[in-house]
Design a protein around this nucleic acid. Structure first.
Lengths: 115, 115
DNA sequence: TGCGCATATAAGTATATGCCTATATACTAA
DNA sequence: TTAGTATATAGGCATATACTTATATGCGCA
């Protein structure tokens, strides 16, 4: 057993359910390395802005990610105070990095956040 | 980054989706410590046998668990050869043990598998 | 062979999910 | 204030999910 604080089955299943969607899981894997705003995800996933907004909202609602307004944009990031943070971090660390999405964003001149 | 073999986002999201159900997640947490058969899960979850069978089937279909017939029973266990085995193991290790379910099963004289 | 137990499958239903379009809200800058 | 950009919400629709009951299949044993 790892020396990580245990999370309840209930909390864990709620988090894992959200991570069970390919789009959200990719978003989280990106957020593990880079903060992002909604319009960047729209560009990356070539998906409607409301769809992205709804995915983001679900993750924000359970406290998995947090938002911070930066001028015109709302930048999202993993919330380290989330009860299951250690768990989701350890999951994301086992997934391939998604830096190519960020690189393409920069190439297209659509990268917004600076980090 | 941990030194675990990477799993694709696709494979991972499929596995995580199944783990996003409270019943299945609890089953998996139990299987992390003890092999079980369908009738034991029926007793533990107080759920219809077809429901249990369907949950088990979904996990078997993607290779997450494997079956082994032992006489009258089919005993299920985590499949170590599953591509995402390291990932699901690391998740389950962060969840509270579910030994009380097994203990209650034994008290009721309904424990089947011997391990 | 035939009965009983364990498990699987089929079919139906209610609810949840993920996407879309249309519209509302919030902030920036002229 | 007004226009433009970013984000959120509402409403609708198609599909997926989780459960149920009814029924089929598979194995062990008398």
């Amino acid at each position: 057993m790892l020396a990580k604080e245990a999370i309840s089955i209930d909390k864990a299943s709620t988090a894992l359910k959200l991570m069970g969607d390919k789009t959200r899981l990719t978003m989280l894997r990106i957020l593990a390395d880079h903060d992002c705003c909604v319009c960047e995800f729209v560009e990356i996933f070539q998906m409607s802005q409301p769809s992205v907004s709804q995915h983001v909202r679900k993750m924000k609602d359970i406290g998995m990610i947090k938002e911070q307004r930066k001028g015109q944009w709302i930048v999202y990031s993993l919330d380290e105070s989330f009860e299951g943070y250690d768990m989701i971090r350890s999951i994301l660390e086992q997934l391939p990095a998604q830096d190519h999405h960020l690189e393409q964003l920069i190439e297209k001149g659509k990268r917004v956040s600076c980090n």
